[in-house]
Design a binder for these strands. Structure first.
Length: 952
RNA sequence: CCGGGUGUGGUGAAAUUGGUAGACAUAUCAGACUUAGGAUCUGACGCGCGAGCAUGGGGGUUCGAGUCCCUCCACCCGGACCA
């Protein structure tokens, strides 16, 4: 009987997290606790997570780390009285669903819907405060209708450098109609006029991109459209693209890592194709300057700065001897122009074959062919191996009129600057290496600097042998040489950007179809507000035999819209839908606009954006770009999307190894593995506790281990070794949130993920400490209950000591949350509960505010206790408690007394004592006298309520 | 090679402006209560017998440095022939 009673009691006293969590998740949904509306009288706060791609693998414990942190912050801001927008959705177009479709024939929409359902279930059990009524999916036609519409805006816009913003294309057309190109300062393809098909125009060979209003008006529509295409911010152009044959698509620069595709690691080659691009270069400088206005980590800002790659210098032209050609180069060191001893062109430079002499042509062609054979990756790996070839041609130095030989070399990249460099061996190490290898002169151009061993690359030196630049430093020389170059008409000062325009079309099925059709090969935009092009069904998700994108397989009847000769068969890249999704959350069901202007004005910028740092040059750059366009065109009142961003670290897996003796089914413990010839095998982490293997579980795990035998260590245990890897099924080290929610509850999981350490840090997942957090929640529960498990709170007024404990906690939790220190909040609350337990405090006046502090972290338990305390409203709307400074005060402070900065003993003194009184009290103390040992103190430093330091 | 970051007990980590280094957990050990415990409670736990020494190494500024400055080392992430 007694045993049974005890058993019952322990059950009652248990913290029934499963029951509580299920109850409140249902209740919240029923009450629409997290639905949010625009309330203009209330201050808003927008907390956003990077929405996930719903992969088939589901969530592992690493994914929710950022979601939990942002959820805590969102709940905290709600308690503080803000109207908080905290939405979630899915970036549901993408490659994996398509590849699965290719393999199985399953429509990607089906796979995607299935995966989303699984994600939703996993997210729900963690208890997030998302307003699911605002969910978006990028693959939903009602969403991508507006992605298409924004594409249309960009397509129908140009960049006016006079106003430094994008404008509707109509304003450019108006300029052409009234004054032709006169007074037009647009960002457009450089030398666009050279690309024009002369046969279609009446322009002569000397056409340099200028025409009159009369010219414009005499053009037919086709000709006008062809010209406008060079000015549009979304444009169709023949460009050299990164083509991935294995994936059958082009890739953007940020989708390539080490010369292979980021997804799948397939080789990538350069190929000339007609593709849609976005003129992001027009925004290079604004994207750079905007970084100074937002609170992002320095590292991610730096990544963007490098990607944009602004460099200032000059564009200089060199005339080719006995030829009408000129070679333009970009240099950041025009001041070293008198040190030019040769020019180097990239092997792909268009003039190479034009200028090569007959004697050299054979060599040049051979060199070009060998360079072409190398992949981008080989070329990068082979940096130290200097190669090159003389073209036989010479150019004239603009100042000395000396003849300078023209070489080609792999170290010059076709895609940067003009694809040609003026080589100054004295001032650039690569040029120096090249000169050294091919016995080219290395003229000395710096005062007192020997350049026979290496180049002088610092900008500190004074110029010599440089005509009018002699005696000048880098800065003055650069200024003066640019003036001279401009006066001579052979160049100009120039700012160059490394960033390329972004290729915007993909030869894939599972993406947004373009709102574009073609007539006579001229593209025309279809406004999706009138007629939306949706994805047609296809029989297969592969490119056609002719290499056309999968959409070309769709029968004409399969398209809901068909106009002109044909539709656009490319689809948009993954970053299209994710570049503006944060705006759609503001007004997700609007059918008239991407979002109403009032709602956009109210919710405004994202105040806190949480997500991984791996999108630095992709999503985060593109969404800034689109935001600026929407701002320029007057659709939104801000030009940076994410005011503050925090990048959560990656959670790595801790995988465990066992050692099998070669050729047997016997396993040896880690301590003794050196004595045998062993093979290391991965073992499922659920079978390992604290590096000790569960032998029975191991035998049952896989059939091949059923009759395994073991050599144990001296304690009779089998010890495993471990390694830190990415979480993957391969290593059996995936920890998923479902199991943990089942075993410990969502509240414990939430708190534990925060307790692990600073969110921004990457760390291995380890469940060692999870019991500590779980016990904390149980301990807190116990404070509120009597032995029968009933809520038992006292209405007595709290003691001063209890108030001090509570208010210290309020202060620290509030301050820590304000500085996004999620991890220290957990220990602060633990300290508070430990102290209240020692005080045996069960007073409502103390526990009620504590409950609110807990609510952002452990919303289910907090809600349950709140209800048991007699509240009928959700704790989510409870006002955040304020701390009272008076309660934090004590009348005495235990001063550490130190001698020359080393703590020796402690002395408790009243806090009302001033510095002199403290000094007197300390010097009079017998321990001080003993410490001084007869020496007289030089001075005594007193920092009130901190420390006393006696200096001798 | 360049840029960003990190370096503190067996482990995860605290220490907001320079002011008692190691809070809070976890692991381990010892003990209590139990038929039992992944429960609860008590205690020990950086190194050293000690005076002392300790925040990657060395130097500096300061009454006082994990924190600021210089320099070197290690690791992680990112970029890399960008003219």
């Amino acid at each position: 009987m007694r045993t049974f009673a005890l058993y019952c009691r322990s059950i009652i006293m248990e913290y029934h997290f499963n029951e509580i969590e299920r109850k409140w998740q249902t209740e919240w949904r029923k009450r629409r606790t997290y639905a949010v509306t625009e309330q203009t009288e209330k201050a808003k706060f927008y907390v956003l997570d990077m929405f996930p791609y719903p992969s088939g693998a589901g969530l592992h414990v690493g994914h929710p780390l950022g979601y939990i942190a942002s959820d805590i912050y969102a709940r905290y801001m709600r308690h503080k009285g803000f109207n908080v927008l905290h939405p979630m959705g899915y970036d549901s177009f993408g490659l994996p669903a398509e590849q699965y479709a290719i393999q199985t024939g399953q429509h990607p929409a089906v796979t995607t819907a299935h995966n989303i359902a699984r994600y939703r279930q996993q997210l729900d059990q963690i208890g997030f405060s998302y307003d699911w009524e605002r969910e978006v999916r990028t693959s939903d036609p009602s969403y991508y209708k507006w992605t298409q519409w924004i594409f249309g805006l960009i397509y129908n816009a140009w960049y006016n450098q006079e106003t430094d913003r994008a404008e509707p294309i109509d304003s450019l057309i108006a300029k052409f109609e009234s004054n032709g190109t006169y007074g037009v300062h647009a960002v457009c393809d450089e030398d666009w006029y050279k690309q024009m098909d002369a046969a279609r125009f009446f322009f002569g060979p000397n056409f340099e991109g200028e025409f009159t209003a009369t010219d414009w008006k005499s053009m037919n529509e086709e000709q006008q459209q062809l010209i406008l295409m060079h000015f549009r911010l979304a444009y169709l152009a023949d460009s050299v693209v990164n083509w991935c044959p294995a994936l059958g698509t082009v890739l953007a620069n940020d989708e390539i890592k080490d010369g292979v595709s980021e997804r799948g690691g397939h080789p990538v080659e350069q190929k000339k194709m007609t593709q849609w691009s976005m003129r992001i270069r027009a925004y290079a400088d604004r994207l750079l300057r905007g970084l100074d206005t937002i609170e992002w980590s320095e590292s991610i800002k730096e990544v963007q700065r490098n990607w944009i790659g602004k460099s200032e210098g000059a564009y200089v032209e060199f005339a080719v001897q006995n030829s009408s050609h000129v070679i333009g180069v970009f240099t950041t060191r025009p001041d070293t122009i008198f040190g030019v001893s040769f020019l180097t062109l990239a092997p792909e430079h268009p003039l190479v074959l034009e200028i090569a002499t007959d004697e050299q042509r054979g060599n040049v062609e051979q060199y070009m062919a060998s360079a072409k054979l190398k992949t981008e990756r080989d070329r990068q790996a082979d940096v130290k191996n200097v190669t090159g070839c003389f073209t036989g041609a010479f150019v004239m130095h603009p100042f000395t009129d000396q003849l300078v030989p023209v070489w080609i070399g792999e170290y010059v990249l076709a895609g940067y600057g003009t694809g040609a460099v003026m080589a100054v061996p004295a001032g650039d190490q690569r040029d120096w290496d090249f000169a050294q290898k091919f016995n080219l002169p290395i003229p000395a151009i710096f005062e007192g600097i020997d350049v026979s061993q290496k180049a002088e690359t610092s900008k500190e030196s004074i110029l010599a042998h440089s005509d009018f630049l002699n005696g000048l430093g880098y800065k003055e020389a650069t200024k003066s040489v640019i003036e001279a170059i401009e006066a001579k008409g052979c160049g100009k000062g120039k700012i160059n950007y490394r960033m390329r325009d972004a290729v915007f079309s993909r030869q894939r099925y599972w993406g947004e179809p373009f709102p574009i059709y073609y007539k006579n090969n001229i593209p025309y935009y279809l406004d999706p507000r009138q007629e939306q092009v949706t994805l047609p069904d296809v029989d297969k998700y592969l490119p056609t035999e002719e290499g056309e994108p999968p959409l070309a397989r769709a029968e004409r009847e399969a398209w809901n819209v068909w106009q002109g000769d044909r539709m656009e068969f490319n689809t948009m890249p993954g970053w299209a839908g994710s570049s503006w999704y944060f705006l759609r959350y503001m007004d997700p069901t609007n059918e008239e606009a991407f979002a109403s202007p009032e709602k956009v004005a109210y919710w405004n910028q994202v105040d806190l954006y949480m997500g991984g740092a791996e999108h630095g040059t992709g999503h985060l750059l593109y969404s800034r770009f689109w935001t600026k366009i929407l701002f320029d065109l007057g659709y939104i009142p801000f030009d940076e999307p994410f005011k503050r961003m925090i990048n959560q670290g990656m959670i790595l897996g801790r995988s465990s190894h066992v050692y099998r003796i070669a050729g047997t089914n016997q396993f040896v413990t880690a301590e003794k593995r050196d004595q045998y010839d062993t093979q290391q095998l991965y073992v499922d982490i659920s079978l390992v506790d604290n590096d000790v293997l569960d032998l029975e579980g191991f035998k049952k795990w896989l059939p091949e281990y059923a009759d395994a035998t073991f050599i144990l260590n001296d304690d009779g245990k089998y010890t495993c070794t471990f390694a830190i890897d990415k979480m993957s099924k391969r290593w059996f080290n995936v920890a998923n949130p479902d199991d943990l929610c089942e075993k410990f509850g969502a509240d414990t999981l939430r708190m534990y993920e925060m307790f692990l350490g600073p969110v921004e840090q990457s760390k291995p997942w380890d469940t060692k400490g999870i019991n500590g957090v779980h016990n904390f929640l149980r301990k807190l529960t116990r404070l509120t209950m009597d032995k029968e498990g009933q809520i038992a709170l006292s209405d007595e007024s709290p003691t001063r000591e209890e108030l001090k404990v509570l208010h210290t906690c309020i202060k620290r939790v509030t301050e820590d949350l304000n500085r996004f220190s999620w991890n220290t909040v957990v220990s602060t609350m633990m300290i508070c509960v430990n102290e209240l337990t020692d005080l045996q405090c069960n007073k409502k006046a103390i526990l009620e505010p504590l409950c609110i502090l807990l609510a952002p972290y452990a919303p289910h338990l907090a809600e349950e206790l709140w209800e048991r305390m007699g509240h009928t409203e959700s704790i989510c709307d409870a006002e955040w408690p304020a701390w009272t400074a008076e309660y934090l005060e004590t009348d005495a402070f235990e001063y550490p007394i130190s001698l020359n900065g080393k703590t020796k003993f402690f002395l408790t003194l009243g806090i009302q004592l001033d510095q002199e009184a403290v000094t007197a009290a300390v010097l009079a103390n017998e321990q001080t006298i003993k410490m001084l040992d007869g020496k007289s103190p030089k001075k005594v430093i007193v920092v009130p309520k901190r420390i006393v330091n006696v200096v001798v």
